[in-house]
Amino acid sequence: MSDHTHGDGHAQGELDMGHTHVSSPAMFMTVLLALLFLTFITVAVAQFDFGSANMLIAMGIASVKASLVIAFFMHLKWDTAVNKLMFLSSFLFLSLLFIFTLADQFTRRLDHELHTTNSEPVDGAWVQPAKSDGPH
């Protein structure tokens, strides 16, 4: 997928644009086929139950597809460092949102495991610790 050309992008030769990266049609076609193949894989693996790994597998494949779109279709691979930093940092801030939101959920599960081993879960999702014996 590295068969791209660095054209100077202008015929007149008067102005050096200095930013043009023209990718080859072969590269775009390769990326498209990879994306379609990964879509097929997404559907195929969804037919099997890997338990709690289901989400990780689906999001893993989606992340690979997203990386292909960002790097090649969006040309970020050949973009300036500041543009790369700006766009990719949005995912960093997004991960903060996810970490703090999901930390709530995962600590609820932890709470469940720590305190309700002797009682039946009410709805299978989360139960209030029935009787707390003192501080913990």
Partner: peptide, 24 residues
């Protein structure tokens, strides 16, 4: 380009909130 990438970063954050709601 710089301005547009910044705009796209805000789009990621817009949809990111919805994805956080989904996962929650």
């Amino acid at each position: 380009k710089l301005g547009f990438w910044l705009f796209l970063a805000t789009e990621i954050l817009l949809f990111g909130g919805l994805f956080a709601a989904y996962f929650y």
